[in-house]
């Protein structure tokens, strides 16, 4: 390793040290969004790294949403909805479960670390769980480091 490279690496590690991951979360209106609300009104502390997009149902989450987020440079993505059996529209989350379980594995196949994508259930009463889920995702994305893009050059 040349001196120049060494210095660059030092600078990079230093930059990484202050680096905060940028996350996006797709939350279902009826459970997870309300769960996030509860976490807030209960004054629970959790990392502020996530931007929330409210969707009518986790069934609304097209895998393209997740792809787009990664393509545009988000470091991690969360999809959360009502627990199976509790969907406001009876079965939306059952369909999304099939789709996203497959998609999750496929992302890994395409070289996107599984640490960057989280798919979980958070009910309206689970403010505590919401805080934990966001905390876990932030931690695992930090471990994976800054996302270098869907295609590494």
């Amino acid at each position: 390793m040349t001196e120049q490279e060494e210095r660059t690496e030092q600078v990079e590690t230093k930059e990484n040290a202050g680096w905060e991951p940028k996350l996006i979360g797709f939350l279902c209106n009826w459970c997870s969004y309300a769960g996030a609300d509860l976490a807030g009104s209960s004054r629970l502390k959790y990392p502020p790294n996530m931007r929330v997009v409210r969707v009518p149902c986790s069934g609304r989450v097209n895998p393209q949403f997740v792809m787009k987020a990664f393509e545009r440079g988000f470091d991690g993505v969360l999809v959360a909805g009502c627990h199976p059996g509790d969907c406001h529209y009876s079965k939306g989350n059952y369909y999304t479960r099939r789709r996203l379980m497959l998609f999750k594995e496929f992302l890994e196949f395409m070289g996107i670390e599984p640490e960057r994508f989280k798919f979980d259930w958070v009910s309206a009463a689970e403010g505590q769980k919401f805080a934990e889920v966001v905390g876990e995702l932030t931690e695992s994305v930090k471990r994976a480091g800054p996302f270098e893009g869907v295609c590494k050059r």
């Binding site: 079965k91 369909y95 479960r97 099939r98 996203l100 979980d120």
Partner: peptide
């Protein structure tokens, strides 16, 4: 993946429903 997660293989039988057109309550869960 489809075989592993949902136990079906495309085009092998006329009975299986399309993979994303159906669900089971005991599907693999996150």
């Amino acid at each position: 993946l489809v075989k592993e997660l949902f136990g079906t293989q495309p085009g092998e039988s006329m009975e299986d429903a399309p993979v994303f057109g159906c669900y089971q309550t005991n599907d693999p869960d996150p």
